[in-house]
Structures are given as structure tokens and as C-alpha cells.
């Protein structure tokens, strides 16, 4: 039996051409800055803006995400890709409340990882955005945290799309693929927890707490000092329960249903045939 070669980038439902890739890079750098600003920013000056910068980011980040999405859809997107994105966003939105509140077991990410793997980085990026947005509208609620969750899960979906198809000269399929995705799932579970904590940290502990609070954020403090404080904050408050719960959930779900879900996605790709239109030419 011959194994079909995996889809090339051109066949993918949400293609990323160089302009989209450029804007994604800009968004990624800016987004990292907007998550990690507490570590780099000088102490707020009394010049009127004060510590309003996190609130400015809450307004600017959605705009940047919208710009990238507008560029990605600039040439129009196939209706099949739209329909699959919509359905998968609905499933993700339905999965989200299943896990919420039960010891950090988060059920959102495994489907995002599997979909990003099969449908490609562009699709994974958009799916991360739309499923967080849809679930915010349906169940979880819209809030200032939403753009940041959207970006973080979009990165997770996009990263899954960039995982290699060939490793050491062999196709990554079957058990090797599930193993690769499990490792990726564990890594992103901890990274997601850390990065959302980093966003949340100055709000919860706050500059008003003063420098004598050992886990609080010091505005304009030295990078290493703040980094140590943050590491202890995230270790004590969430790593043991929330992040580990998320990593375990990702692992168990990918091991249990990874192979059949990947197969179902690949079957959908074959049925939908995301390829350029067929043209008939005179012989």
C-alpha cells in the first residue's frame, strides 16, 4: 500500500502568503511584548499616562489581530474552510465549559493542536482566534482577557501546524505522530499557563502592593528580580494544579483520541480537496 504524501502548503485551507506571514511575525513580536511588558517597562512616569499601559494594550491587541485576520482573508477563503472552521470552533466552545473549574483540566487545546497539525498553521491560527471568540460569546463571557487568550491559543494552533512532517528522514505518522503531539501538548500547556499568568500578574498583585511583597510585581524593577518573583508567583499559585492539570488533560486526550481524530480530519481534507481550481486547457 502506498502512503499518500502529506498536503503541500498550497493545498491548505487557509494559505499563508508572504504578506500574511510578515504581519503574523509583527503580531507575534508585538504580542510577546504585550504579554511580557511587566518585565521590561521602566517605572511609570507621572506624565499623565501612568500605569495605563495594560489598558492601552487591551484596546490595541484586538486591532492588531483584526488586521492580521483581514490580511489572511484578503484573497477570499474557500467556503469549505469557513464551514469547517465554524464547526470546529463550535466543538471547541462546547468542550471549554466541560473542563472549566475541575482542577485545571482544560479540554480546549487538544482539538486545536490536532486541527493545526492536519489543516496547517494558517488554519490553526484562525481556529485559535475564532474558537476563543465563539466560546466567549456562547459561554465564557467577553472580557479584557479575551484578546490575550485568543492570541495565546492562536499561537498554539499555529505552532502545531509548523510541527515537522518528516523527522530523521521518515514520515511522522502513526504512533510517532501521536508522541510528537503529546510532547507538544505538554509544552504548550505549561507555556500557556505561564504566559497568561504573566499577563494577569501585575493586575492581581499590582504595583500598589509595594516592594516589600516578595511575589509582587515591581514597576521598573530589574529584569532578573521581576523574573524571579514571577517564577515563584506562577510556581506557587498555578503550576502544580492548573498547568499540570492542563498538561495531563492534553496528554490523555491526545493519546486516547489523537489517531482517530487525525484520521477523521485527513478524511475531511481529502473530501474537501483544498486545491486550486481545475482548469481545462486545449490540447
Amino acid at each position: 500500500m502506498t502512503r499518500r504524501a502529506p498536503l503541500t502548503l498550497d493545498d491548505r485551507p487557509v494559505p499563508l502568503e508572504w504578506k500574511s506571514a510578515l504581519m503574523l511575525t509583527v503580531l507575534t513580536v508585538a504580542g510577546l511584548g504585550m504579554f511580557a511588558w511587566p518585565l521590561f517597562v521602566a517605572a511609570p512616569s507621572p506624565s499623565g499616562l501612568g500605569d495605563a499601559s495594560p489598558f492601552i494594550f487591551v484596546a490595541l491587541l484586538p486591532l492588531l489581530i483584526f488586521l492580521v485576520l483581514a490580511q489572511i482573508s484578503e484573497k477570499g477563503i474557500d467556503a469549505k474552510a469557513l464551514a469547517i472552521l465554524g464547526v470546529l470552533s463550535a466543538i471547541n466552545a462546547a468542550l471549554r465549559p466541560l473542563g472549566a473549574g475541575t482542577g485545571g483540566i482544560e479540554t480546549v487545546f487538544f482539538l486545536l493542536i490536532l486541527a493545526g497539525r492536519v489543516f496547517g498553521p494558517g488554519f490553526g491560527f484562525v481556529l485559535g482566534c475564532t474558537s476563543m471568540f465563539a466560546s466567549a460569546l456562547l459561554t465564557a463571557g467577553v472580557g479584557p482577557w479575551m484578546p490575550f487568550q485568543m492570541l495565546a491559543s492562536a499561537w498554539i494552533g499555529m505552532g502545531a501546524g509548523f510541527l515537522p512532517n518528516r523527522l530523521f528522514g521518515r514520515w511522522v505518522r502513526g504512533k510517532a505522530e501521536v508522541a510528537l503531539l503529546v510532547v507538544y501538548g505538554i509544552v504548550v500547556a505549561y507555556l500557556f499557563g505561564a504566559i497568561m499568568n504573566l499577563w494577569f500578574w501585575p493586575f492581581v498583585t499590582g504595583p500598589s502592593m509595594g516592594a516589600d511583597a516578595q511575589l509582587a510585581y515591581i514597576p521598573g524593577g530589574p529584569l532578573l528580580e521581576n523574573l524571579t518573583r514571577f517564577a515563584w508567583f506562577t510556581l506557587i499559585t498555578s503550576t502544580a494544579v492548573w498547568d499540570t492539570g492542563r498538561a495531563v488533560a492534553n496528554t490523555v486526550l491526545i493519546v486516547l483520541v489523537g489517531a482517530p481524530v487525525l484520521a477523521a480530519f485527513r478524511r475531511t481534507v481529502r473530501r474537501a480537496v483544498f486545491a486550486p481550481d481545475i482548469e481545462f486547457v486545449q490540447p
Partner: peptide
């Protein structure tokens, strides 16, 4: 209009949700 496709995706998601 620039985000028309992605708005359609969210509308599909919200309409499909009860079908699940």
C-alpha cells in the same frame, strides 16, 4: 467587511452549537 469571512465563521459556530 474586511473581517466578513471570520464573522461568518463565528456565526456558523454559534448556529452549529445547538446541533451538537
Amino acid at each position: 467587511g474586511a473581517l466578513y469571512e471570520w464573522g461568518a465563521v463565528v456565526v456558523i459556530a454559534i448556529s452549529v452549537f445547538p446541533q451538537l
